[in-house]
Simulated assay, not measured.
Amino acid sequence: MSEPDPTLNNADLARAQLREAMAQLASGDRGALERIYQATSAKLFGICLRILGDRGEAEDALQDVYVSLWQRAKNYDPERGSPISWLAVFARNRAVDRLRKGKVRSGAVAVDEAAGIPDRRPLADAVLESSERSARVHHCIGTLEERQQDAIRTAFFEGTTYAELAEKRGVPLGTMKSWVRRGLARLKRCLEE
C-alpha cells in the first residue's frame, strides 16, 4: 500500500484506502480482499440482516458478496461511485437473490419490501460527504485573516452575538459586523472554488 496523504482527514483516508484496495483486488491481490472485508463487512452484514431477518442467512449472503467481489472486482468503476456504495448494492442484491430463491427461513421480509427497508444510520457516502464538506469549510476558514476567523468561529460555532463579540474585542459593533461580512464573502468564494 502507498503512503497515506497527510492532508486527508480520516474519512477521506478510509475512502482512498478502500479505492486502492479495490484496484489491488482487481489486479489479483488476495490481501486486498481481507482489507476490503475489514473495512466494509459490518455495514454490508447490516444490510443483509435487515433484508433477510436471520443472522445465519445474512452471514451466508455476506459470504456470497465477497465471493462475487473476488470474481467481479474488475467491474468496479471508481468514476461511477464509491466502493462502499457499489458493495452495498452488491449486498442488497445477494440478499434479495436469496429471498427469491426461497433459501431463507422465516423472519425475512417479502422480496417486494426489501427495497424499502429503512436504514436509520446515514449512508457511508453521506457520512463521507459531510466529513468532506466540514473539512472544506475548516480549510476555507483557515485562509481568512485571524480576526475574521476568530469572529466567524465564535459567532457561528459558539453562538456569540456580534454585539458580544465587539464588546469582548473592544471594537465598535459596525467594525465587528464588517469583519464578519468580509470574512463570510471570502469564505463563500473559497467554498465555490
Score class of each variant (00 low, 15 high):
156 F>A: 06
49 L>I: 02
135 A>L: 01
181 R>F: 13
138 H>R: 12
104 V>T: 13
122 P>N: 05
44 L>K: 07
181 R>P: 02
45 F>Y: 15
100 R>W: 04
151 A>T: 10
128 L>M: 11
119 D>R: 08
98 R>F: 03
91 A>S: 12
176 M>W: 07
157 F>P: 03
57 E>V: 02
49 L>A: 14
111 V>C: 12
101 K>Y: 04
95 A>L: 05
149 Q>N: 08
121 R>E: 09
88 A>T: 12
174 G>H: 05
41 S>E: 04
154 T>G: 01
104 V>H: 01
56 G>S: 14
101 K>G: 11
142 G>Y: 03
164 E>K: 07
140 C>Y: 08
18 L>D: 04
21 A>P: 06
127 V>Y: 04
17 Q>C: 07
87 L>T: 00
154 T>N: 07
13 L>R: 15
163 A>C: 02
38 Q>H: 09
163 A>N: 00
167 E>G: 06
77 D>Y: 06
87 L>E: 02
37 Y>P: 03
51 I>V: 15
193 E>Q: 15
36 I>N: 07
93 N>Y: 02
40 T>G: 01
99 L>Y: 04
44 L>C: 12
133 R>E: 10
120 R>N: 14
6 P>Q: 04
52 L>V: 15
150 D>Y: 12
171 V>I: 15
1 M>L: 07
184 L>T: 14
173 L>S: 09
183 G>F: 06
177 K>I: 06
121 R>M: 02
166 A>Y: 06
81 G>M: 03
155 A>V: 11
10 N>K: 15
182 R>N: 10
71 Q>G: 03
188 K>M: 09
77 D>T: 05
70 W>I: 00
189 R>L: 13
21 A>M: 02
96 V>M: 08
103 K>G: 07
95 A>F: 04
161 T>E: 11
82 S>T: 12
75 N>Y: 08
165 L>W: 05
68 S>N: 13
124 A>P: 01
101 K>C: 05
152 I>T: 09
24 Q>K: 10
56 G>Y: 08
124 A>N: 01
91 A>M: 08
112 D>G: 13
78 P>Q: 03
158 E>T: 13
98 R>W: 00
54 D>R: 10
31 G>C: 04
119 D>H: 11
137 V>R: 11
4 P>D: 13
84 I>Q: 14
24 Q>T: 00
140 C>N: 01
178 S>M: 13
86 W>P: 11
20 E>I: 00
19 R>F: 07
152 I>L: 11
23 A>K: 02
14 A>K: 14
68 S>M: 06
126 A>M: 10
153 R>T: 12
108 A>W: 02
160 T>H: 12
43 K>V: 15
24 Q>A: 15
59 E>H: 09
67 V>D: 05
92 R>G: 12
177 K>Y: 06
33 L>K: 10
36 I>E: 11
176 M>G: 04
39 A>V: 04
25 L>M: 09
59 E>S: 14
40 T>W: 02
101 K>R: 14
83 P>G: 00
105 R>D: 09
49 L>W: 10
13 L>D: 09
3 E>G: 01
134 S>L: 11
127 V>R: 06
18 L>F: 01
79 E>V: 03
175 T>K: 11
18 L>N: 00
154 T>S: 13
71 Q>I: 05
77 D>I: 02
163 A>T: 14
90 F>D: 06
94 R>I: 01
69 L>C: 08
13 L>M: 08
28 G>W: 08
27 S>H: 08
15 R>D: 12
178 S>T: 11
40 T>C: 14
